[in-house]
């Protein structure tokens, strides 16, 4: 194991983390402001990817496709918020779980119905193809650097939005005291719709960017949804900062763990079983991490107690 390889894997972990951040930022905002457990957040990831694939196949432009993912997921978000989600805010968490679970079924099967059962094609633009030399010996995928860049850009954007703008003030007020904010005469249902659409569009963007290097298919959102929940719980629910740090932590732990654990175990046991055992523990690692963090800090790293 060379230090170059280690550094490259670290970048991979960070890239995975920034992508998780796009998913979890929306999820944590929606929970923080509206108190909604949204299991269907992964569906917006899927909707974003499918919108992008559709537009890319029509226009051939990746950038238009990214735009489509943002707007497609946002439109879906607005519609779903107005028709269904709005009625759930005052309900029990469990009702929300059931309703959004049902939404997953509805949206996944709806998308499959319309687009068919086979994965769609979505590729990265030509000028982001290939690798870029960074530092001496390290070469790294341009597109993955682009993902890291986009993730950081959005993190900064969210920071400015929340700390510097009028909308941000309302969001923070909503997180602290829901009754108060409506008493102040702010149109709370509009605020909720905006926050929900914002979360949905971030998830949609993540879906399109990742769909371009993985696959655009039905059911792509659920594994990532579970990871996003892991992230916001580790970071502390409602905290954007927590989501960012949690994302990077999960991304790096998962990547580094699954590569270096088998190598580490090879010191103690023979190669074949080290590979096997190492991969097994590697796939459990982020859950072990989450359990450990929660045992030590029961409300996450930056959560309010």
């Amino acid at each position: 194991m060379t230090s170059i390889l280690f550094f490259e894997q670290l970048l991979n972990g960070i890239q995975f983390g920034t992508m998780l951040f796009l998913m979890s930022a929306g999820l944590t905002l929606i929970f923080g402001v509206m108190g909604l457990i949204n299991l269907a957040h992964g569906s917006f990831y899927m909707i974003g990817a499918f919108s992008a694939a559709l537009i890319a196949s029509l226009t051939g432009s990746f950038w238009l496709a990214l735009l489509a993912s943002l707007s497609g997921a946002a439109i879906a978000g607005v519609l779903i918020e107005i028709i269904i989600i709005r009625r759930l805010y005052r309900r029990d968490h469990l009702d929300q779980v059931l309703a959004t679970f049902a939404l997953i079924l509805l949206l996944s099967e709806g998308v499959r119905w319309y687009f068919g059962a086979f994965p769609l094609y979505l590729d990265i633009p030509e000028n982001l193809n290939g690798t870029l030399p960074i530092l001496d010996d390290i070469i790294y995928s341009k597109y993955r650097l682009f993902i890291i860049f986009m993730g950081l850009l959005i993190a900064v954007g969210l920071y400015i939005l929340i700390s510097k703008t009028r909308l941000g003030v309302r969001i923070r007020a909503g997180q602290n005291d829901r009754q108060m904010i409506s008493a102040l005469g702010i149109d709370i249902s509009k605020l909720y719709t905006i926050v929900f659409a914002l979360g949905a569009s971030l998830a949609g963007l993540a879906g399109a960017m990742i769909g371009a290097i993985q696959s655009v298919e039905v059911g792509m959102g659920e594994p990532i949804l579970i990871l996003a929940f892991v992230v916001i719980v580790i970071g502390g629910i409602g905290s954007i900062k927590g989501a960012l740090i949690g994302s990077i932590l999960v991304g790096v732990t998962d990547t580094i763990g699954r590569i270096f654990l088998p190598e580490l175990l090879k010191i103690f046991m023979e190669s074949a079983s080290a590979t096997s055992v190492g991969s097994s523990i590697g796939s459990m690692l982020i859950y072990i991490l989450m359990a450990l963090i929660l045992i030590i800090k029961p409300s996450g790293l930056f959560g309010k107690t």
């Binding site: 929940f229 892991v230 859950y287 072990i288 359990a291 029961p298 409300s299």
Partner: peptide, 12 residues
């Protein structure tokens, strides 16, 4: 929600 997720973690 933390309880929801930690129980999920053990099952996973």
């Amino acid at each position: 929600v933390y309880f929801i997720m930690i129980t999920l973690a053990f099952a996973q």
